[in-house]
Amino acid sequence: MLGHAACWLSGLLTLFLLLFIVIFLVLKGIHVISWDFIATNPKPSLDQNLTGGIFTPVIGTFLLVAMGTLFALPWALATAIYLAEYSEGNLWVGPIRTGIDILSGVPTIVFAIFGLAIFTNPHLSLFSTMVEDVANAKAFGRSFMVSSITMAMMVLPFIIKSIEEAIKAVPSAYREAAYGMGISKWRTIRKIVLPSAIPGIITGVVLGIGRIAGDTAIVWLCLGGSMTLTGTQPWWQPQNWLATLQNTGSTLTTYIFYSSPAGEGNSPDKAFGAGLILIIIIFALNSLVDYWGRYRTLREE
């Protein structure tokens, strides 16, 4: 009986934990959120009321999500297709899977320092900028490009896994029918297998997006600690886009870290506002995955 009670208690505790987090964020954050909060840049100030909004962090999150997905998706797709469709009979496929598996367990902070270690190499300075006035030449190693490539490596194993599952779930009858008609293997994959796997591929991408949008460690180390975009201004003009990508900025997560009492921004109320917006984005992405999953099972029935 005691065990029953303990299990009920733990279950309810879990429910209340989520309710508590959501209610707390809403209560603390809702009064900060306004159009001004979203549409103005963060400004350093000792007075919390003058610290501006989260415009550039929001831009940063979207930039990083878009570029990270752009790098990760083709790569993950190719790997997943190989593993699901071509790997039969390849003796190396066991070790290859193990490698990808281990990759998924690597902490993001390790990816972060790895990204820095690679991209501070002066030969790779086109991904960021050169550091001036240092005896031995070194690239700065922190930029949107560096962090989105690093993000791509971080989410790669997760996207591979969900795409591979989606491809394997495509009924083999489709493949047989296509092969039986004299369609080559690659054309069958292109025209029959991948279109049928699209919901699963989208699920994988959305999961990856959630991970990129929620990560702090890689952003903090590989994108730098500056809250605004540091490329040539104004950043929205096309001739400055490349410079923006080569320079630093922030995302919602680093904004929260920076604005909390643990950082130097000293505007905890705004951290809650940004936290509320971030969590809304993350929950929306999750419901999207849910919706796709349900849609798929409905269609299969």
Binding site: T14, L15, I21, F24, G214, T216, F257, P261, G275
Partner: peptide
């Protein structure tokens, strides 16, 4: 609801847990 709760809790970014812990 409980399954969704577990999934959403797993999806909350660590910086938000940090913020709640700190506050």
């Amino acid at each position: 609801p409980l399954e969704s709760t577990v999934r959403l809790l797993a999806a909350i970014p660590s910086v938000i847990y940090g913020l709640i812990g700190l506050m």
